Amino acid sequence: MANGNQVDVVTIGESMVLFQPMPEGTITYAPLYAKSVGGAESNVALALSRLGKRTRWISRLGNDPFADIILSTLAGEGVDISQVIKDPENQTAVFFKESKGYGDPNVYYYRKNSAASMLSKQDIAETWFEGAKHLHVTGITPALGEYTTEMIKESMKQAKASGLTVSFDPNLRKKLWSEEKAKETLLSLIPLCDIFMPGLDEAEFLLGEKQEADYLHLFQQMGPKVVVLKLGTRGSLIQYGQEQKKEEVYKIDHIVDTVGAGDAFAAGLLSVILDSETPLADESLNKSVPKAIKRANLMGALATQFKGDWEGSPTLAEVESLAEGKQHTTR
């Protein structure tokens, strides 16, 4: 839980209220829906909070009951929501998710002209980064509105100027913008971050088809000191300084829902790297990266074991027990 103004990680982005049919099935014939909260940046904040990190989530929300659901959920998990802007003119977004029992679930967003899509660099305040160590952003927020790209760019610049380290997950959402605009914008954000964490498909989208190791080198040349390439069922690759490491996937028997796995991966990685007072120093990375990438793979795998974006996120004690191969005591 955030202590005063001191936080480890700040995230900026849109969260929405998620509705899912219950019992599980298609939207068309569902008589009832379960509600929860979803959003890439808040997923990371929530997962990090459960891992013992102090987090702050920043956004714009409407003056409506959906905003109240989001705020009470995040506050209840210890996330600092003091910098959230209430927008009296625009509404909080919602989305629906349905599973048909095969493949990834279908997701339907209702976020056009939402309060979060109205975020602009004029909203940025010094208090956003007050007492913080790190900023985490994704490629979703720049796609939301007319001014959100400039807001994210300026936030990354101001965070760095204030001494924060910055991580960036491209989190490509082709439904939100044209591929040309997405590629141009995402590439422009890479030089502004210290830790870049694309998936293999996103790397190919940005740079074309190349060898996996080449992606790491090419992205690193753009500015980030640490580049992580998520390989799905084949684990992940990480490049830090001149060092490169491959980490095998954490094996699971059955996938329930893949949504939120990338956010859990990011939380796992950052939760270890940010334990150091100088997280990007070579000596610090040499110590933290082996544990960080292992935890990231573990967190990503665990996220596929439950419905919902973050609800099943483990505590630090649970993660450490699993990492050590121990059985968590439940009774």
Rank of each mutant, 00 (worst) to 15 (best):
L206Y: 09
G208A: 10
E209N: 10
K210W: 09
Q211G: 15
E212I: 09
E212H: 15
E212K: 15
E212C: 05
E212V: 07
D214F: 04
D214R: 11
Y215M: 11
Y215C: 03
Y215D: 01
L216M: 11
L216V: 10
F219R: 11
Q220K: 14
Q221K: 14
Q221S: 13
Q221N: 12
M222C: 05
M222I: 04
G223D: 04
G223T: 10
P224Y: 06
P224T: 06
K225R: 14
V226F: 04
V226R: 11
V227H: 03
V227T: 15
V227F: 07
L229H: 07
L229G: 14
K230Q: 06
K230H: 11
G232C: 03
T233L: 09
T233S: 14
T233C: 05
R234W: 08
G235F: 07
G235P: 08
S236M: 07
L237G: 05
L237Y: 11
I238W: 06
Q239H: 10
Y240A: 13
G241A: 08
E243F: 11
E243V: 13
E243Q: 15
Q244Y: 02
K245E: 14
K245L: 15
K246F: 12
K246N: 14
E247F: 10
E248Y: 01
E248F: 07
E248L: 10
V249S: 14
V249L: 07
Y250K: 02
K251Y: 03
K251L: 12
K251D: 05
I252K: 05
I252T: 13
I252Y: 01
D253M: 01
D253C: 00
D253A: 10
D253W: 00
H254D: 05
H254S: 11
I255G: 00
D257P: 05
D257R: 09
V259F: 04
V259D: 07
V259K: 00
G260A: 03
G260F: 04
G260T: 08
A261R: 00
A261T: 01
A261Y: 00
D263G: 05
A264H: 06
F265E: 00
F265G: 02
A266N: 12
A266D: 08
A267F: 08
A267S: 15
G268V: 07
G268K: 07
G268L: 08
L269H: 03
L269R: 11
L270D: 07
L270K: 10
S271A: 13
S271E: 07
S271T: 09
